[in-house]
């Protein structure tokens, strides 16, 4: 009985691992760094994780996880509630729609794919925020955030690959390629 219960807990935890890893990375990004320009050099790791897990482990990372991450990001930050939820869903939908193109290609292609999708996501976020505040937000700070997010993608992707290979490789679901 105990064994089966621990198995169930273990299985559920495994299923939640991508979500938990993403939450930990989001929280890490809120740590005060105290270095110059730290306000503009914070990557949006949630975008990276959503793109990565949607591409490679959609079975463990559904729309609910994406929406939940949006609520977490909106609650921790000062952006209006709903902005991050919407942006994350946009990334999720785009990753599903265009992910087949990059899924089996070399890492550089997946990175380029992320650069394109995250650019669209940043533009959508900028647009939503500009509407909310009825003025255009400064593009420079947002653009630097985008650049840092794209540049840090390999590092976060490697971390996610490690989690995947170490803990989730045994029950991998291979998606049919279109």
């Amino acid at each position: 009985m105990d064994d089966s219960l621990s198995d169930i807990i273990c299985y559920q935890l495994k299923k939640m691992l991508p979500l938990l890893c993403t939450i930990v990375l989001i929280l890490l990004m809120y740590t005060p760094f105290h270095f110059p320009l730290s306000k503009f050099l914070r990557p949006d790791v949630a975008m990276i994780c959503i793109y990565f897990w949607t591409l490679y482990r959609r079975d463990l990372f559904g729309l609910f996880s994406v929406a939940f991450l949006g609520v977490v990001a909106d609650s921790l930050g000062l952006v209006p509630l709903g902005v991050n939820i919407f942006v994350f869903v946009v990334i999720y939908v785009m990753s599903i729609s265009y992910g087949w193109f990059v899924n089996t290609k070399p890492f550089a292609v997946s990175w380029t794919g992320f650069a394109v999708i995250s650019f669209a996501a940043f533009v959508v976020k900028w647009f939503l925020m500009s509407i909310y505040y009825s003025c255009f937000l400064s593009v420079l700070g947002i653009f630097s955030g985008y650049i840092v997010t794209v540049l840090i993608y390999p590092l976060i992707a490697r971390l996610n690959i490690f989690v995947q290979n170490k803990f989730l490789a045994s029950d991998e679901v291979i998606y049919e390629q279109r």
Partner: peptide, 15 residues
């Protein structure tokens, strides 16, 4: 004590 810092092009706040 500053526990968390939010800062990017979208908002600037502290917890």
């Amino acid at each position: 004590k500053v526990v968390a810092e939010e800062g990017d092009g979208f908002s600037h706040s502290l917890i």
